[in-house]
């Protein structure tokens, strides 16, 4: 286990080495967050509600997605496709290391740094803008919220990894990822809570994995779901976690058989 801890720590150190890049990345995150924050602030002035969302709940949702984003959506696995294409994967296949755990450890290092910055940024936003914020005190909701975040973390890891495996069959690994990021931007719920969409669309989205990355954990935190809705949502999350895991495993095995270490 120690080697994986060192990989996570190295990733943390790498990010400290390229400090300007990382700080710029975080500034960009703040700009994106403020754009959506101010939009919802004017759409929902104090006293007005929209489909069950008051200003306080909506701004908690928007700020909450920013924090969950740094936990769930920060990942290094975007480089898997390049590793395969460049032939670097061979270096890992020859070493006594689990390739999945290697990337997962890198993700942990990345997430740790992003979480630290995200907390600092949100603290600053709270001090400067003083947004109305909903604090959940019910341990039941908090517990399920944490559990759903952990599941979403795995769903995202496997989804991202799966996209990287396209590298076994095609050098074009960025274009599919571009589509994935575009879809994620809308269907994960970082711009708006998905239940403001027309009911038919929402009912379809409820069965897709994107919904369980940001939207579902935040809905639990806000206490807007019944026990039955939480249970069914968690069941779908667990299903996707295992389904994507098995698809990744099968794709990885198949990819290795066709891998020629081209580029090395």
């Amino acid at each position: 286990m120690k080697k994986y801890y060192i990989i996570a720590r190295n990733t943390w150190d790498e990010m400290l080495t390229y400090r300007v890049s990382f700080v710029m990345w975080r500034i960009r995150n703040i700009i994106q967050l403020l754009t959506i924050y101010f939009l919802w602030q004017v759409i929902l002035p104090p006293g007005k509600t929209l489909l069950g969302y008051s200003q306080s709940l909506m701004l908690t949702y928007i700020l909450g997605t920013s924090l969950i984003d740094s936990v769930v959506l920060s990942s290094r696995t975007y480089a898997v496709g390049e590793e395969i294409n460049s032939g670097n994967l061979m270096n890992f296949l020859l070493r006594p290391i689990n390739y999945f755990l290697y990337w997962f450890s890198k993700d942990i290092g990345d997430k740790a740094m992003n979480i630290c910055f995200s907390i600092a940024e949100l603290t600053l936003i709270f001090i400067i803008l003083r947004p109305p914020f909903f604090i959940q005190t019910n341990p039941f909701y908090i517990l399920f919220f944490v559990f759903s975040v952990i599941l979403s973390l795995f769903i995202y890891f496997f989804l991202n990894f799966l996209l990287g495996l396209i590298g076994f069959w095609s050098p074009e690994v960025w274009a599919p990822r571009f589509i994935f990021i575009t879809l994620l931007g809308f269907f994960a719920g970082s711009l708006f809570p998905l239940d403001i969409l027309p009911k038919t669309i929402y009912e379809i989205l409820r069965f897709l994995p994107f919904t369980y990355l940001l939207y579902f954990p935040l809905k639990i935190y806000l206490g807007q779901l019944s026990f039955l809705q939480i249970a069914s949502g968690l069941a779908i999350s667990i299903f996707w976690t295992f389904a994507i895991y098995f698809i990744v495993k099968a794709t990885w095995q198949k990819g290795l058989k066709s891998y020629t270490a081209y580029g090395r």
Partner: peptide, 24 residues
């Protein structure tokens, strides 16, 4: 293949954002 996907991604982003504005 890549060119088609990039154009498609840009179109999806454009249409989705219009849809988002429409919903709001």
């Amino acid at each position: 293949f890549g060119a088609v996907l990039f154009v498609l991604g840009k179109l999806i982003r454009f249409v989705f954002f219009l849809f988002f504005l429409l919903i709001i």
